[in-house]
């Protein structure tokens, strides 16, 4: 299963709810304002690192770059994808849940 999150974790609890209510082995894609949750050095870093132990985490690189960050600013273990990679994730997983 793929979960998508598009809200900044500093503004909304979408990422928190997503991580709480998703199963081990699932994939979580952060895009739009949710990409701020994938960055090193924030208060969220520990949460994301913990999630990486049981879930695969992805972040949409064009959204990272648009906002002034680069791939090297992303927490290690969080994989960057482009839109084609987003499409692949949706195709690979049986269902998609958007945490709007």
């Amino acid at each position: 299963m793929l979960h998508t999150v598009n809200k900044s974790p500093f503004e909304k609890n979408s990422l928190e709810s997503c991580l709480r209510l998703s199963k081990e082995g699932c994939a979580v894609l952060l895009f739009e304002d949710a990409v701020y949750g994938a960055l090193k050095g924030t208060q969220l870093e520990a949460t994301v690192v913990e999630a990486l132990k049981s879930k695969k985490m992805y972040v949409l690189l064009p959204d990272i770059e648009a906002r002034g960050m680069r791939a090297e600013d992303v927490i290690s273990g969080v994989q960057t994808v482009d839109y084609a990679g987003f499409v692949d994730l949706v195709a690979e997983k049986a269902t998609v849940q958007a945490w709007l």
Binding site: M1, L21, T95, A98
Partner: peptide, 17 residues
């Protein structure tokens, strides 16, 4: 939490609002 995660994982189509 676990029951909700299970329920979601069993679905074919999820419409989110």
């Amino acid at each position: 939490d676990a029951q909700m995660a299970d329920l979601m994982a069993q679905q074919d189509i999820i419409l989110s609002f």
